[in-house]
Design a binder for these strands. Sequence first.
RNA 1: GGGCGAGUAGCUCAGUUGGCUAGAGCGUUCGCCUUACACGCGAAAUGUCGUGGGUUCGAGUCCCUCCUCGCCUACCA
Length: 1064
Amino acid sequence: MPPMSKAYNPADHENRIWQKWTEADAFAADPGRVLDGDARPYCVLIPPPNVTAALHLGHALNGTIQDILVRAHRMMGYETLWMPGTDHAGIATQTMVDKRLQEQGKPGIADYKRKELDGGNGRDEFLAIVQEFKDDFEQRITNQFQKMGCSCDWKRQRFTMDDICARAVREAFFQLFKDGLIYRGKRLVNWDPVTQTALADDEVEMEEVNGHFYYLRYPLVKEIEGDPTIPVTWGELAARGYPDAENHPDDEQAWITVATTRPETYMGDTGVAVNPKDPRAGAVRGMHVMLPIVGRVIPIIEDDYVVLPVKYGGEEGDAKAEMSTGFLKVTPAHDPNDYMIGQRHDLEMINIMAPDASISDQHGWDREERGEDGHIFLGKSREEARKLVVKEFDARTVAEGSEGSLLEKMVPHRHSVGHSYRSHVPVEPYLSDQWYCKVTDDKLRGNAQRALLPEQRTEQSIKDWPESRPKMHTAGSNDGTMTFYPSRYAKTYEIWHDNLRDWCISRQLWWGHRIPVWNGSVIGPTEKVDRFESTMAAWWRQGKLTTQLTIDSSDPNPPLTNSGEPLIGQEIAVCVRDQDPEIIAFLEEYGFTQDPDVLDTWFSSALWPLSTMGWPDASAAKDSSNIADFESLLPAFNPTSVLCTAREIITLWVSRMTMFNRYFLGDEDHAGKAPFKDVFIHAMIQDGEGRKMSKTLGNGVDPLDIIDSHGSDAMRFTLCQMTTQTQDVRMPVELDESTGKNTSPKFDLGRNLCNKLWNASKFALGMFEKAELKAGIPISPEELSLVDRWMLSRVTEATNKVNTALRNYMFKDYADAIYDLFWRDFCDWYLESIKPTIADSPTQAAVLRNVIDAILRLIHPVMPFITETLFERFESLPIREIEGFNFETTQSSATLCQSGWPTPDDELRDEVAVEAYERVRSLVTAIREVRATNQVKPKRQITLHVNGPLEDDIARWSPLVETLAGVDTITADDPEGASSSFMFEGEEYQLSNLADALDAGAERDRLEKELASIEKNIKGIQGRLSNPGYVDKAPEHLVQQTRDQLAQLEKDHAATKAALDKLG
RNA sequence: GGGCGAGUAGCUCAGUUGGCUAGAGCGUUCGCCUUACACGCGAAAUGUCGUGGGUUCGAGUCCCUCCUCGCCUACCA
């Protein structure tokens, strides 16, 4: 092997080491060993990154965390699977590709849509382009993960739209459809008018905007003799007891005022609601209002949803009560709350917008037929329409000749409005046909909630919703097994389920899993209908399809029925289980067409724990992947060990995966196992100012840039070290002038550690050239020197610390534990201590060999490349065992990555050695301090004068003290000539020969400072001891400890005083 | 509005059931190319633990008030 370079250069090693792991097939998981009981399973599913973009630092953190866990458990002897993959990210990818095409001056999706409408093949052509884009990014992402050293089982890599995942989506949809948990409905959805698709609630971002409250007057009318437009006068209202009506001219037409932030929707109003408790409600009961300009007459209804204005009993301080007029315009087709009111009162739903959110009479508002006016608004955008409505209202009065405008007033108002996370325009509540998954069903929501560890449930939630209590005492129950780390996130998860609504799963996109439903109706000659019914029934019995109409299975020749209603002419939705060409051809022959929509991306993401493991048909998965053991994956590795993800994902993804895993792996109760035992939520990385890293801010850091400049291990260590239990961590971002790329000084920490590791190893190898290293009978720790026993003890303690940290997902603790062990203990003290002795001590050489081996193993999970590189250099050196200093047995030790984890016996913890060596360290530190304050040249060897209690100890410690403190003579004699004194364990000792002439002034300054510090401490401790409460109530050992401390300090004080006096 | 989190050294963060003189890394200052490492070694300085109360012998830690910031969630009357 070539000599080691002066500094560690990661680029020289990382690619070669990756190659080595690949050739050793070191990351391959063997489910067979789990099923045979030869090894315990450890499995992690990667949260599949979107194929929309290259990985960012958050992914690097996520990947580092998982790789640390996976590598550590692999070394601990678990059969370990880390499943890699990517996500197709429907809307993001589709819009990204469209944007790119347009930037390149090529036809965009609008052009392909036109082509498709014209009978061409626009959809498939566009999808081919997206596919290419996806292949490109999937490759880039894979490469990035591999550069980071992620030890995934790469041959098992999945993509949420590949054949195997598609089969899972198809089957899941079929089963949920069959079980009535997927339904279609005309509902208000979050509509993105730019991308023209529905969005799920979680795809909507709230943003504060400056808006107004507009107070609009609607004239009151009543019906007389078939004419519903007869004006109601104030006089009439006054007669019916309407408050304040008498303040208006008796014979003028009366009005009510509604408040709204969205006047442009008024054309879609189909009612005005008032609270029945409102004193005005009785007076207007049965009356109507006429919408200005459009002329529609709509009823006044009573609903206690309406908030009373403060004036009529509404709560002061309630924003709604303060702003409200008590009359609420109801626009069921354009507001979710109005939609519910509309349903309760059977109001019309009039959609006044086109899919691009412009005002239109072609999508539900049949203006002409109803004889409604309002053509002036047609074709206007939402924003234009708002202005126009306000302008028109402002220009008109309630009735000809009456005072005041229809626009009563405008009040500025700042409020949050939902925006599309993709196009960033305000989301429009829009009435359309969509598919829903009934996640609020107890079989889904309830099981997700019951999956949580009982200790992590809150009493309130269980009280509010008793069925969600985990059934822990029922035999075979899979409830209560999932644990969140940190535990506070369990609450977020719980609350999410408490407030869940049905999940809109259809998207008006092309890139995604097409909904496997064919729609149509059957009409025509009896034999045609009969043939349809019998054929469908046969397939239905074979489980190849299901329909939204039911089939009577008791009938030998069952027709499709819907509660006894005849089939003919009815709209039927047929869900075809597999992509069965025969069935599809048959349906198409009857004029059925496949639903054009695709499923929400999360539908396939939710199946990730199942689809990646071959569900529902592992043998088919085996055939299409050439992975021979596909059929063993699910039984061996589901439930997986832990899911590591960022908190923005908790609510939707963890929940949905839990629902689906339990649903599809359960028996009739659909309460199978949760997909993970643990869920670890890690921090999000922000820049130095606490902002999210983003492309638009230009504050993102590219992991590949850091790998180039600092190395993969350096990046990983730094990220690991930053991973505390808080929700955000900050990473100051700087522009590297030389490369023009963003970086952060934080990564120097990792780079420096790598370099230190490299050099310490180089040094150790140099020592092994001098010292004799050979195998032999195991060494008993008792034969070892103080410093060796101390080092072994420290490794043992550090190993325990590391194990505890990893078990609790405390990644910073892990980083700190290995950092302190390696740098502070091993480099600063152990290596320095053994310099004079190791060449002549084969046992010490053996200890060094063992210790460095253990350190490399403990560090490997976080810094795999450099540790593997160094392992190669140590590997061939003989190792002599130390009793109790053991390692886990693994299947192979061809690479460090596959080798065993340190399992040092607790016996190696040597309190005597630790205590003694700590005393040596304090003594050395005390001497060093004197040297530094007296500016003793580093090379100068000085004389230590020891008489008194330390004499016996110093005889044993002398080689250590001499080498560590730069002392060449230790004597019991008093110093001749100038000397400097220091305190150790309450006694005063002298150092001499510090310089050719000692500066008495500097010495006095130093001692005076020391004295002041001791006095301050004595005062504090005396204060505590003179407090009777403390002495009486505090635990005995603490009080004793404090007394000892005081005694020690008083000794120090006296010694320092004496030294000062001596100086004169 | 509701929930969660954060506020500790110039910066980034630890500080687990209350109990040594509140720690680490970076940065700063001083001295050093001391048989691996200047990406290093030795030493030093730096804190009203956001505010104000309370519980306690004792509070960075527990309780309450308020302030600042971040995130989630709800709200377009």
